[in-house]
Nucleic acid binder design. Structure first.
Lengths: 245, 245
DNA sequence: CGTTAGTTTGACCTGTATCAAAGCAGGTGG
DNA sequence: CCACCTGCTTTGATACAGGTCAAACTAACG
């Protein structure tokens, strides 16, 4: 873990956008969030283990993983830009960077959010964001427990799209993410080979296009029907759109 | 939901025991918890939907479930006596009583616990309890994603045993719970038939005995090896042992 | 160019699902 | 006390989703 004093990143801005997707926030609140960027920034190569404390993802892609003794790996949750990473709840869990990523210290942001009064919009947005994060975990359980490979993939793609939308890192039609089939397999509890085949099927059905990290979902409604995914944002599209790291 | 003014139940006592399993609590704290039993008690038949608010399980067996449109059901988490049930995070989730069960209003207990100062043992115990609950959710993800049916079953049995131990509803060797293979199937993401076969195998291996609701785990260490489950309580055994409802 | 990381293909195998039917309690009512 | 439910477990036969292994293909990159 190479700590660098590199210039500011958009980490707190990402968090701000995420929160703004849950409740109408005042410009003052957002500005206060941005001012928090004081935390030191850390840069992480390939995949390694991030140690302790609360961190906020600035760019890249990380994951909370559980590695079994025989090499099987389960990715419990993907951590996207704008997400807050807490200390794992079990020693057997590790946070790994799936790609070169940047994170900043999130304790200031966390303290700031937790200190808001119950009736402030910022508090409510934060509550909703945490609720949504929890929902994603439970969704992961349903995916793995009762959905077929085909449905799982559809469901996950929609979830990722929604989450990236909320931080303004997706367009209405798709998103850019260096998500290999290897990673998808470990999220979805499938083999790489099968992930590949399922993706081909989705392509054949016209529900997915993939080209070097660019995922396009031409028909979200149809995907949602496949996976019984509730489309929360009827084409919520943030003003400024950009590609994810 | 049939609300009854029936005499007090041991609900807050169960919660007290659970918390006491995480940190050394003063008798005063425990007494304060017990005094909270003011909440009204509700009684629930077979399986139905419990509505809103925070509830504390007094007896029986409930679950947070997700039902898919074609009838597939995933049990996301089992709610045992002493557990706190929060409002589901998604409208598609429901809390159902898998058996006749009793719950009391948990908001008083929750408020009480949340109001403790950071340095009080009660606060720490509560933190650890919540952490553990979260760990169980993540364990469920790993189980469904990367463990075989055989491993899943072993893992779940150990988890249930540990949790029941913490509320004093298990002996060192086993526990009593009206857990049908039907329910197990929906927790483990398997078919009933397969659950049955896996249980037979465990029996043949001398790792499990089952007789009308009484689960016995003659060799927890061996089970733990099968499932890579970390045995937290080296035979923690509460003073007074009793059977679960 | 060779190397490396990722994707794709094919052949084959296996863990679990499905279907259908038969046992086995425990409770109820006659 | 029996006869009958009803809910749960067990069994067998068969089907399929998804895993495994191995190798070829592709593209980025120094």
């Amino acid at each position: 873990m190479h700590t660098a004093a590199t210039p500011a990143c958009a980490a707190s801005e990402l968090l701000g956008r995420r929160l703004a997707s849950y409740a109408l926030l005042s410009l003052a609140d957002l500005a206060a969030l941005h001012r928090l960027k004081a935390g030191e920034e850390s840069h992480i190569g390939g995949d390694e283990l991030a140690a302790a404390g609360v961190r906020l993802v600035a760019a890249g892609l990380l994951a909370e993983t559980r590695l079994l003794s025989d090499g099987r790996r389960q990715i419990i949750a993907l951590k996207l830009p704008g997400d807050l990473i807490r200390e794992p709840v079990a020693p057997s869990h590790a946070i790994v960077a799936l790609h070169p990523s940047r994170t900043i210290d999130g304790s200031a942001a966390l303290a700031f959010l937790d200190s808001r009064r119950r009736d402030e919009p910022l508090h409510q947005a934060w509550q909703l964001a945490m609720r949504h994060e929890q929902r994603c975990l439970l969704d992961q359980i349903v995916r793995l427990g009762r959905l077929s490979a085909h449905e799982r993939m559809a469901h996950l793609l929609l979830e990722l799209h929604e989450r990236l939308c909320r931080v303004g890192l997706a367009t209405a039609r798709g998103f850019q993410l260096r998500l290999t089939q290897d990673i998808l397999a470990d999220v979805l509890g499938l083999s790489v080979v099968h992930v590949n085949r399922v993706m081909q099927q989705l392509r054949r059905e016209g529900l997915l296009t993939y080209r070097s990290g660019l995922y396009t979902l031409p028909d979200r409604a149809a995907l949602a029907r496949v996976a019984e995914y509730p489309l929360a944002l009827q084409d919520l599209e943030h003003a400024g759109l950009r590609k994810a790291g």
